[in-house]
Design a protein around this nucleic acid. Structure first.
Lengths: 338, 338
DNA sequence: TTGTATGCGTTATCAT
DNA sequence: ATGATAACGCATACAA
């Protein structure tokens, strides 16, 4: 069994015939220490390649300066990108982040939160897993007064701080855009019906239809579970009705990609036969043919705000849930131009 | 300042009038404990919502059962995907992983390794940052006998275990495929010249040319720094020579995406004017028009092997570097069919 | 079966 | 300016 023994301040102390407290002080650059001893300690620490044990530091300090970030999957560009902005904001505030993926599984979400709690993260930034229908594990965090911020995938059944975009308005904008471009039979390929984000967008979709005097029809609404296979099935079903849609709003670029793929397989032209608009505005949107019109979310700002809300809770005595709603931008490309 | 006081085994012990060691034993399900006391302890722990402090456990046990994974960026699908397979393999072996991104920066790579060392990770799985030209920080790990596995982005200047694919052969296959499809003026849009992976692929590219009796010309080789902006410039330069290429091999799908974009802007048809093959076989390849021919790497197997090599070092006394070379698969799509 | 004592690496309090 | 000692939360060798 292979195990190295790292050098500790004790080792340094013994070698130099000083006490551990002196070494500790020197290493942390405390003022009341003799330059000579300090230099000797620093030099030896360097030579011995001393690595401070963060575990011990955290244990005695009773804080980790670490925040836990839990997302469905880092394979989704949106979440990988959010992680980056969260990391940057956290780092600036002197915090480091610990990341976990749930892979859309409720059980993994449960386990990851547990692990992070055990690892003494000081707060959480979470985007809910698709399969999380029960929120007791999250609400327990709130009861325990553990700082928490939800983003993107939230639910009204959890009363916490949130960072979201105005999903209803965004979907309204996107749908109105399709209508303006001449679409009359509008469909929405939404996400799972228990995700608030999906419902909000569906509301915006419906409002836009109503505002334009168009009929909202159930047959033009379907729910994807985010997987490619399922999305393709949903898309094909949707196009198989007697009077198929001439415009589709999808809940994410990934859903849109699969949908476009399915439409092309059916020999349909985009945007001539079916115009499309989606959410997220991933880089890939630009590369597709036709390029994909998509709602852009202010990822950098969302990360900054999420960290800000979390820090606020970390530094406050009482936790007052606060919701930050950010604006989106409709980036118009070929898929909706006709 | 907001700070909760988590319940400890001490709290449980006091409440139940037993010693901490009894609680400790009960909680971990040790055999020599009376059913009654055990039940009482478990029940109370549940009621008080006791969370074991992992920091303390790790400190006393002198192990963390954690491996550090450092990648250039999780926004690259390849790395996000590798992370998943590494996590799965690690979990099966009872290890958890701690992830960090370098954002291609040498300084961040340095800092992240430092942080992870301080956090007592037991070993590293690393894919080098683009900007890492000096490898002293990595070689120091080896000298300190800290288990290490490199994957994908490696260098011969680091003598460690590695998990790679046969890059030379893969590039050869890809290039030979282009030649077979009738391309005669072949170009390679490679990565930074100091990355071994790029050189290996360039070697394979050249070998394929030579094998086919074609000329290897410097003007047909250029190096991208992986960014979209730079890639587009490189691609345009490459097509501006007097006798532009009719086939391009790119080092990654992302580079290919940008290149295709640039080619289309110039009014070139793919594959008729220029055929294309790239590396990684990301899902997006399927969605493009034309769909993109790409070299598929066995990501799942790579993750499994990386963890296996690391565990081997963790459990062995001497560290014998071992290199696992895996095979790739050329997935032929429209971009090279003519 | 349970308790006592010691230690993990570090910081902090109180002396000197 | 420096040292001895306690403490952080937990595990464990040794006693009882």
């Amino acid at each position: 069994m292979h195990r190295r023994t790292p050098v500790t301040i004790k080792d340094i102390a013994q070698t130099l015939n000083v006490s551990v407290s002196t070494v500790s002080r020197a290493l942390r650059g405390m003022p009341e220490i003799h330059p000579d001893t300090k230099n000797a300690i620093l030099k030896l620490a360097e030579e011995m390649d001393y690595q401070p044990n963060q575990l011990a530091k955290n244990l005695v300090g009773n804080r980790t300066k670490t925040i836990g970030v839990i997302v469905p999957s880092l394979s989704y560009y949106f979440f990988a990108s959010m992680l980056n902005s969260i990391e940057e904001a956290a780092m600036q505030a002197g915090y480091s982040v610990m990341v976990c993926q749930t892979n859309e599984s409720y059980l993994r979400e449960l386990a990851q939160i547990q692990n992070m709690l055990n690892s003494q993260v000081e707060g959480f930034i979470i985007s809910l897993a698709r399969d999380s229908l029960d929120y007791e594990h999250i609400n327990r965090l709130i009861r325990k007064q553990i700082p928490l911020v939800l983003f993107d995938r939230y639910t009204d059944k959890i009363e916490s701080s949130k960072v979201i975009v105005d999903n209803k308005q965004a979907a309204f904008k996107a749908t109105a855009h399709l209508i303006e471009k001449g679409c009359r039979r509008l469909a929405c390929l939404a996400g799972p019906p228990h995700l608030e984000i999906s419902n909000q967008r569906l509301d915006g979709f419906r409002d836009a239809l109503v505002s334009a005097g168009l009929q909202y029809e159930e047959q033009y609404v379907s729910h994807s579970d985010f997987t490619q296979e399922n999305t393709i099935i949903q898309a094909n079903n949707m196009m198989s009705v007697s009077n198929p849609p001439d415009g589709i709003l999808t809940m994410s670029d990934n859903i849109a990609f699969s949908t476009m793929y399915a439409l092309k397989q059916r020999g349909l032209r985009i945007p001539e036969d079916v115009a499309m608009v989606s959410f997220n505005n991933e880089p890939t949107c630009v590369y597709l043919t036709p390029s994909l019109t998509s709602i852009s979310q202010p990822i950098r700002e969302m990360g900054t705000q999420a960290v800000r809300l979390l820090l606020k809770q970390l530094e406050a005595d009482i936790i007052e849930p606060e919701t930050v709603v950010l604006d989106t931008q409709l980036v118009i490309r070929e898929s909706s131009l006709r």
